[in-house]
C-alpha cells in the first residue's frame, strides 16, 4: 500500500497544482503576483509543474514599491527571462504621483499601505478577475482564517464574517463583474515546508536570503534595518556592520535582517528548524502596529 502514498510535501505540491489549474480554468483573466520573495518563487515553480510544456495561462505581476532590495529586482528580471514568461510591473511611485497621495513620513516610513492602491488600480487596468498569491495560513492569525479562494468586492475588501463555505476541494470561483478572487495555493504550507521544497527542487533564490555582510541601523526594538536611501538616519543612530540574512523579503523600509551564518539552503533549513521566533515576528516591522494590523490591511484590499 505504501507504494501508493504520497509524502507530505508531495501532497502539498499536488494540492497547489490542482488549485492553480482551477484558477486557469475558472477565470478569464487571472494573474500571479510575483514579488521575487521565496513564497512567490515557489508559486512560479508550481505553475511550471501545472502548465508545462504550455505557457502559463496568466502573466506575473509585480507591484513595485520602489523600496525593494536591488538584489530582488535583479533576480526578478533574470528569473522571469529564464522561464520565458510575461511580467507586468506597476509602480507605487506612479500611483502616488497621479493620485497626489500623501506618503507616510517618519524614520522607517513604509509604502506597504500604499501598495494596496496600486494593486487595486492594476487589477482594474487589466480587468484581472483572479490574483494568485503566496500568502500562507501559518504566517499570521488573520491569514489563518482565509479560504483558498477568497472573494473580494469591487473595493478589494475582505469580509471575514461572510466567507463562502469551502467544501472538500471544490472551489467556487463564480463572481460578479468588478469583484475578484484572491487565490492562495500554498495556504497549507508552513515556512519550513516552503524551504524544504526549495531545497528539494533546487530553486535559485535572491542573494539576500543568504548570509552576507550588511550595514544596518539597530532599532530600539533591537531589529536590524539595512542602511538605504529610503530610511531616515539620525545622528543618534548606531550603525553597525553585521553578518546577516533575510528571512522574508519585503521592502527595505519594513523588513528587518536576522543575524545568520547560513549561506546555503541546507543551512537555512537547519536554522528554521530550530528557530523559536516566527518569520513575521522576527522580520516585519509593519505587523507590529496593532493586534489586528494584518486583519485591517486585508479588509482594505491587501493580501
Amino acid at each position: 500500500m505504501d507504494k501508493y502514498r504520497l509524502d507530505y510535501l508531495e501532497q502539498l505540491e499536488s494540492e497547489a497544482i490542482y488549485i492553480m489549474r482551477e484558477v486557469a480554468a475558472q477565470f478569464e483573466k487571472p494573474a500571479l503576483l510575483f514579488s521575487g520573495g521565496k513564497d512567490s518563487i515557489t508559486l512560479v515553480r508550481l505553475a511550471e509543474k501545472a502548465f508545462r510544456p504550455g505557457k502559463f495561462p496568466f502573466p506575473l505581476v509585480h507591484i513595485d514599491t520602489g523600496h525593494n532590495f536591488p538584489e530582488t529586482i535583479k533576480y526578478r528580471d533574470n528569473y522571469v527571462k529564464s522561464i520565458g514568461e510575461t511580467l507586468i510591473v506597476r509602480y507605487v511611485e506612479d500611483t502616488i504621483k497621479s493620485k497626489k497621495m500623501t506618503e507616510p513620513k517618519g524614520k522607517f516610513a513604509s509604502r506597504n499601505g500604499l501598495q494596496t492602491y496600486t494593486l487595486l488600480d492594476t487589477i482594474e487596468e487589466f480587468k484581472f478577475d483572479a490574483c494568485i498569491g503566496g500568502a500562507r495560513r501559518d504566517e499570521e492569525k488573520a491569514r489563518a482564517k482565509e479560504r483558498i479562494f477568497s472573494v473580494r468586492d469591487e473595493f478589494g475588501q475582505w469580509d471575514p464574517k461572510r466567507q463562502r463555505p469551502e467544501l472538500w476541494n471544490i472551489y467556487n470561483g463564480k463572481i460578479h463583474k468588478g469583484e475578484n478572487v484572491r487565490v492562495f495555493p500554498i495556504s497549507n504550507w508552513t515556512e519550513l515546508d516552503v524551504w524544504t521544497y526549495i531545497q528539494k527542487e533546487n530553486i535559485p533564490l535572491p542573494g539576500i536570503y543568504f548570509s552576507h555582510d550588511r550595514k544596518c541601523v539597530l532599532t530600539k526594538e533591537n531589529q536590524l534595518v539595512a542602511v538605504s536611501d529610503f530610511i531616515q538616519i539620525d545622528e543618534s543612530d548606531t550603525i553597525i556592520t553585521k553578518r546577516v540574512r533575510y528571512r522574508t523579503v519585503g521592502d527595505m523600509t519594513c523588513t528587518a535582517a536576522v543575524e545568520s551564518e547560513a549561506s546555503t539552503i541546507d543551512d537555512i533549513v537547519k536554522e528554521i528548524k530550530i528557530s523559536r521566533i516566527s518569520e513575521r515576528g522576527e522580520t516585519r516591522i509593519d505587523d507590529k502596529v496593532s493586534e489586528a494590523a494584518m486583519e485591517d490591511r486585508k479588509k482594505g484590499g491587501y493580501f
Binding site: D138, A142, A144, K145, K161, S187, N188, E291
Partner: peptide, 28 residues
C-alpha cells in the same frame, strides 16, 4: 492563539475556521 479576528476576540467566540499547523517527530 486561534481566535484570529477582532470580532472573535471581542466576543470570546470562534466565528470561522482557523487553520493551525504543527508537527512532531512522527507526523505533521
Amino acid at each position: 492563539l486561534t481566535d484570529g479576528l477582532r470580532a472573535e476576540r471581542e466576543q470570546g467566540i470562534t466565528i470561522d475556521v482557523a487553520h493551525k499547523y504543527f508537527s512532531t517527530d512522527k507526523r505533521k
